[in-house]
Simulated scan of single mutants.
Amino acid sequence: MNAVPPLTPDSATPEAAGPAFSPLYRQIKALIVRSLQAGEWKPGEAIPSEMELAARFRVSQGTVRKAIDEMATENLLVRRQGKGTFVATHAEERVQYRFLRLESTDEASAPRSVERLFLDCRRLRAPAEVARALDMKAGETAVQIRRILSFDGTPAVLDEIWLPGALFKGLTAERLSEYRGPLYGLFESEFGVHMVRADERLRAVPAGADEAELLRVPVGTPLLSVERRSFTYGDKVVELRRGLYHTAKHHYRNELS
């Protein structure tokens, strides 16, 4: 690996416009994130050992460990006992639905299967509110995806997903239907876009005629509306998702700390 010049507060952290000083471990964290952004280590791949990173950045192993601990807490990296530290990926079975918080109200009857039906995938000029949410310029192209998630054959989620067109060239309904893994796994492997965090807004809404037909519920049925913005490295927003959840047999579970 190429040698890295000695760290200084101004050169090490990407937030150059912020405070002049940042703790050393935070500077190391910023450099590791920069390498993730550049694709040096892909999702699912192992990163160098703490000793190797300490030599690369000319700092102590303890400083590197503190940076990696914070990144593991933020789900950017995953530690595996006896194997090393890996870039987090949505392709892993245990985390592939990390952003899907819908759970069965009865643990004994947890869904045995999750089915996805893609209704359409279109490229079009982003509506003004979508462009604003995705930090896009007015008139830029976006990808709109509509799909239904069913648990054990019963529709539970109607999703409308918006993506920046420039990042997802070549994404089609056929490709979505062919892919068997999680949607975010496809975004990682084929488009190099890794979702690392999200924020959400929730409210209750009545089902309109179209939503009621797709979710097989009466018009006016209470639904949970979840609007999510997902971010990649550097806090760049890369997805706007508007989901309608039928929660008659499920609840929306979140953990606060």
Rank of each mutant, 00 (worst) to 15 (best):
A55I: 00
A55Q: 10
A55R: 09
A55T: 04
A55G: 06
R56K: 11
R56F: 06
R56P: 01
R56I: 00
R56A: 08
F57D: 02
F57W: 05
F57P: 01
F57G: 02
F57E: 01
F57N: 01
R58G: 12
R58D: 14
V59I: 10
V59D: 07
S60Q: 04
S60K: 02
S60T: 14
Q61T: 15
Q61L: 08
G62I: 02
G62M: 04
G62D: 11
G62V: 03
G62H: 03
G62R: 01
G62P: 01
G62F: 03
T63K: 00
T63Y: 01
T63G: 03
T63I: 05
T63N: 04
V64G: 05
V64L: 08
V64Q: 08
R65P: 08
R65N: 15
R65G: 14
R65L: 15
K66H: 12
K66N: 09
K66W: 05
K66R: 15
K66D: 13
A67N: 10
A67D: 12
A67Q: 09
A67F: 09
A67R: 05
A67V: 10
A67L: 07
I68N: 11
I68A: 08
D69P: 02
D69F: 10
D69L: 09
D69W: 08
E70I: 02
E70V: 06
E70Y: 04
E70D: 12
M71R: 03
M71Q: 06
M71E: 04
A72N: 11
A72Q: 11
T73G: 07
T73Q: 12
T73N: 09
T73W: 07
T73K: 11
T73V: 08
T73Y: 08
E74M: 04
E74P: 00
E74K: 08
N75A: 05
N75I: 00
N75Y: 06
N75L: 03
L76V: 07
L76N: 06
L76P: 02
L77V: 11
L77M: 10
V78M: 08
V78E: 13
V78K: 11
V78Y: 06
V78I: 11
V78Q: 11
V78H: 03
V78L: 10
V78F: 06
R79Y: 15
R79Q: 13
R79I: 09
R79G: 10
R79N: 12
R80F: 10
R80I: 14
R80L: 13
R80W: 08
R80H: 11
Q81V: 14
Q81I: 14
Q81S: 15
Q81E: 15
Q81D: 15
Q81L: 14
G82T: 13
G82A: 13
K83E: 15
K83P: 04
K83H: 14
K83R: 15
G84R: 12
T85F: 13
T85E: 14
T85D: 13
T85S: 13
F86R: 04
F86E: 06
F86G: 06
F86Q: 04
F86Y: 13
A88T: 07
A88N: 06
A88L: 01
A88I: 00
T89A: 00
T89W: 02
T89M: 02
T89E: 03
T89N: 01
H90E: 03
A91E: 03
